[in-house]
Design a binder for these strands. Structure first.
Lengths: 226, 226
DNA sequence: CCCGAGTTTGAACCATGAGTCAACCTGGGT
DNA sequence: ACCCAGGTTGACTCATGGTTCAAACTCGGG
């Protein structure tokens, strides 16, 4: 019995290190997949591309994921999750709602910030949309991701109202999350498409203006006069 | 010389009937392709699907189009063109700008109107976006289509201002076309995705409200009191 | 009624890429 | 040193579907 317990314990420890290694591989693959999808597009993404990016053989990809389809869906949501969590953490550190809003907009403009290692979120979004049109699993995921995104805007509005930065204007915070979110979506598409009439800087400017209008504060009035 | 001329004339007449037949086939195929794309998605569309829809052999498709890719691009723009022209003609017949705006919004909400034979415009738009990300030809087409769409909104604003329905509010009409267009885009995506928080009716309502806000008129005030 | 340019067919060809598999490697436990 | 479970490989199988092509068909003109 003692012997058995010790063995079990050891097996468990081994299993744990292996498991960690294994989840690392998982993430590594998901990361690579997201990267390849942004580069080549979902439709053109081959398993061997992902494998190559990982410096690994194609067979291994299917050792970790049941099928290409599953992997792609997971990769899309994984990338979005990662981006969202980073943004969310950053915003929570800021105290001023207007600062939060500015940063959120800044992060939402495709190509505005030099993308450190960040892949382009919006290109992935479009792929998510296409996929969600026919794939119920993806559709569900998308709705959850979208809800979260809208809520983060609504939260900024609520925060600003609670601190008095924004005044009540009769429009529900969730409703504003929806409207501002939709507006950002629409513009982001154009910027992503390299539309000549919508360079990143202009999108940023327009977003700030329209958001201010909708929320009901003036961009000119300095919120915290020095 | 006379003989030659007569022969030429006849050949020309023959050629003309043949040409008409040929362009009909072209359109027939484009139509079928657009239909299949909405049904199955761009990525899942096979040449044989399109052929089947036409009641024609797969080989014929490639007799009329150099390659699958070319066909798909043409089909996407063809469908959009057709929709736009129909809408444009209809709007031009209306005199009141607010009526035009209402109708434009109505037509922009996915699934609001029972789609007579109309295929879903917005599903095609998303496919266009995905494609345009990597295909320069498609990118160019998209920008032109988008510009046209924004302009039709701006024109409504200009029209309303010229008749006095809308008052000047310091925002350029083109700028409003851009903003309202982007907003509609963003919402349409959610409706198309069957997002539970955005049923078609709600989108319509929100669009009317936000457009009224941006343009600067009140929905309550009847423009033409009986 | 025959000719031939333009259409249409469907089988054949071929490249691609997902998924499988048997052999091989690795590193911790004994 | 040896064991072996899990990780890794890369060649192979197989289905799919775009593209080609030679033969068949259509139909207006002579």
């Amino acid at each position: 019995m003692t012997l058995y317990a010790v063995q079990a314990l050891r097996r468990c420890r081994l299993a744990r290190t292996r498991q960690r290694q294994s989840t690392e591989r998982h993430q590594e693959i998901l990361e690579a997949a997201a990267r390849v999808i942004t580069d080549r597009g979902l439709a053109e993404t081959r398993i061997s591309d992902i494998a190559e990016r990982c410096g690994v053989s194609p067979g291994l990809i299917l050792y970790y994921f049941a099928s290409k389809d599953r992997l792609l869906i997971e990769a899309l949501t994984y990338a979005n999750d990662k981006f969202y969590l980073g943004q969310s953490r950053e915003l929570r550190r800021m105290s001023a709602a207007r600062e939060q809003l500015d940063r959120l907009i800044e992060l939402s403009v495709p190509g505005l910030l030099p993308e450190y290692e960040r892949l382009d979120e919006w290109a992935l979004w479009i792929e998510i949309w296409v996929r969600a049109l026919r794939d119920p699993t993806m559709a569900e995921e998308r709705e959850a991701l979208d809800r979260r995104w809208r809520r983060s805007i609504a939260d900024i509005v609520r925060h600003g109202r609670s601190t008095g930065e924004f005044s009540e204007n009769g429009v529900d915070a969730d409703e504003l999350g929806l409207r501002i979110g939709a507006f950002i979506d629409g513009l982001a598409i154009q910027v992503l498409m390299n539309d000549t009439s919508m360079p990143p800087e202009r999108m940023q400017q327009v977003c700030r203006e329209v958001a201010a209008n909708m929320i009901g504060f003036s961009l000119d009035a300095e919120p915290t006069p020095s």
